[in-house]
Nucleic acid binder design. Structure first.
Length: 504
RNA sequence: GGCCCGUUCGUCUAGGGGUUAGGACGUUAGAUUUUCAUUCUAGAAACAGGGGUUCGAUUCCCCUACGGGCUACCA
């Protein structure tokens, strides 16, 4: 009955993928999955001057890491290709010409220099119904002259001819009725001098040809919506027009405006999904992945930025998101990004996942520090330390002492607790521990406490020094558990070594 | 400037004509943890302003203010 749900994400491959883009992808993906529809990836590379080497592949990598895999599109196959607009160049021209023939568009011969002069001369110059009769276009140049200009190959564009006084309105799935007066909208270029379409033409033609049912895009596209709607009408595709949903923007945490790459650098958090290095400038921007986020956490936090399910639930699996997502519950206003809350989501996800699920990530983190260990050993440790990790790299800081002995000791922590008689205690502890054959945390604790009371030293006075000897500082899980896990030999060696170091 | 969109604790948000305006992050204070983290308890913290409509508006309408977006042969 209803037509098949087909949604698309249509990035232009010009640089790193912003989390705002990731959220748009996520909403597209959730909507498609919820409705048994298709999620399509289309590359909008109509601006050849902004082409960036590697950007398309990078986007694919981001999609893969986020787990938001397209069903169709560039790199994923499908029957509506090609999915790269630069490869569809010849498709658009005929539609632009059709619009001219119908009187809804016209040729314009003004050069970029002409336009720039115009803008300099007249503040807020707009190429629109008020000014187009003063310009060089097919409405001011005689028909024959236009023909010969075109035949001669004079550079020209095709502009939409905005109607005089119409009200263009549509129902936005998030905002409700939105309307524009065509009097206020300028004559946007549809086809550029190089024969490539602009976004405005390409998006309409491709959405039609690819049978897109819903368009989810950022709020920054709202002002150009009337151009697109008119194009759908003029091209005679009225009945197939997709439903529109303009998503609220992600704003800077401080100041004003939408979140940008620069804000990330300035405030110390990633803005891109994955690390990105601009091939031209070699400028680097860090990604969520490399900062130590779980993809589940990124998706979760982005979903909750502007959407909620009306309950107090905040942690959602992808399946829950697919089941519960609804456009009606997307907030209208922009949301300032909150880095603290973002980290909280990641910490929650680290706690939520099992050691088994965390294993590959932790292995990766440790491998970067040249630590390689057996899976079972790793899993034991992950369960012990995961609740004190916020970002994945924290696994190293919280667990390195399980793999290597401390190189330095927190002397400040030790000093206040140290005395000669405690040194003696630990000397004796070595020989007592040495006699234990069944190396078990509980037994160790008993032996430790008995020796302490025999020497009339408060256990509390000894715990911290013991901890520092084993891990180097005052952190980490239960200390006897650590002793148990690193084993008898390591425990004894570390006590002995620490004793020696402290003496100096 | 013009046009469009928006506005509940510092931040993300729930709510919706009559509520002690709820939750989360952060923050403060405690408890637990012989370290830290986790966990738990408690606290401070919001309906931008002005007009309507109404018996009653945070909720509906209008205006103002403020915020955001757009205003390219960029997307």
């Amino acid at each position: 009955m209803d037509k098949e749900v087909r949604v698309r994400f249509a990035p232009s491959p010009t640089g790193g993928l912003h989390i705002g883009g990731v959220r748009t992808i996520l909403f597209n993906y959730l909507f498609a999955k919820q409705n048994n529809g298709k999620f399509i990836l289309r590359i909008e590379d109509t601006d050849q001057s902004r082409f960036v080497q590697g950007a398309e592949e990078y986007i694919l990598n981001c999609l893969e890491w986020c787990g938001l895999t397209p069903d169709e599109g560039q790199g994923f196959g499908g029957n509506f290709g090609p999915y790269r607009q630069s490869e569809r160049k010849n498709i658009y021209i005929k539609y632009a010409q059709q619009l001219v023939a119908q009187g809804h568009a016209y040729y314009a011969f003004d050069t970029p220099v002409d336009l720039e002069n115009k803008r300099n001369a007249i503040p807020n110059f707009q190429y629109n119904q008020a000014t187009r009769l003063q310009m060089r276009n097919s409405m001011t140049i005689p028909h024959e002259a236009v023909q010969s200009l075109i035949n001669e190959g004079a550079p020209h564009v095709i502009r939409i001819k905005m109607p005089e006084n119409e009200n263009v309105y549509f129902n936005d799935l998030i905002r409700g009725d939105v309307s524009f007066d065509t009097h206020q909208v300028d004559d946007k270029v549809l086809l550029k001098a190089d024969g490539m379409p602009t976004y405005h033409l390409a998006v309409v033609v491709d959405d039609y040809l690819m049978k897109i049912s819903h368009v989810f895009r950022g709020e920054e596209w709202l002002p150009s919506a009337p151009v697109h709607i008119l194009l759908w009408k003029y091209l005679g595709w009225d009945n197939d027009m997709p439903k529109w949903a303009h998503l609220p923007l992600i704003l800077k945490p401080d100041g004003k405006g939408k979140l940008s790459k620069r804000d990330g650098e300035r405030l110390g958090f990633p803005v891109f999904a994955l690390d990105w290095t601009d091939p031209k400038t070699q400028e680097k921007a860090t990604g969520y992945k490399e900062t130590g986020f779980l993809p589940q956490a990124l998706n979760n936090l982005l979903a909750l930025l502007g959407w909620n399910d009306s309950t107090e639930q905040e942690i959602f699996t992808m399946q829950e998101l697919v089941d519960k997502f609804s456009l009606e519950r997307v907030h209208k206003g922009g949301a300032k990004f909150d880095w603290d809350k973002a980290k909280w989501f990641n910490a929650e996800w680290i706690k939520k996942l099992s050691a088994e699920e965390l294993l590959p990530y932790v292995k990766d983190v440790l491998a970067n520090k040249n630590i390689n260990a057996k899976d079972d050993y790793l899993k034991t440790i992950i369960d012990l330390v995961k609740e004190r990790c916020v970002l994945l790299p924290d696994f190293y800081a919280q667990s390195h002492f399980f793999f290597t002995e401390p190189k330095t000791y927190d002397m400040d922590a030790l000093k206040s607790k140290w005395s000669d008689e405690k040194g003696l205690f630990f000397n004796d502890l070595i020989s007592q521990f040495n006699q234990i054959n069944n190396w078990d945390g509980v037994d160790l604790e008993n032996v430790f406490k008995e020796l302490a009371s025999a020497k009339a030293i408060k256990v509390g006075e000894l715990m911290l020094p013991f901890r520092v000897m084993l891990v180097g500082g005052k952190f980490g899980p239960q200390v006897f558990l650590i002793a148990e896990i690193i084993g008898k030999q390591q425990t004894l060696a570390r006590i002995a070594k620490a004793l020696e170091t402290i003496k100096l």
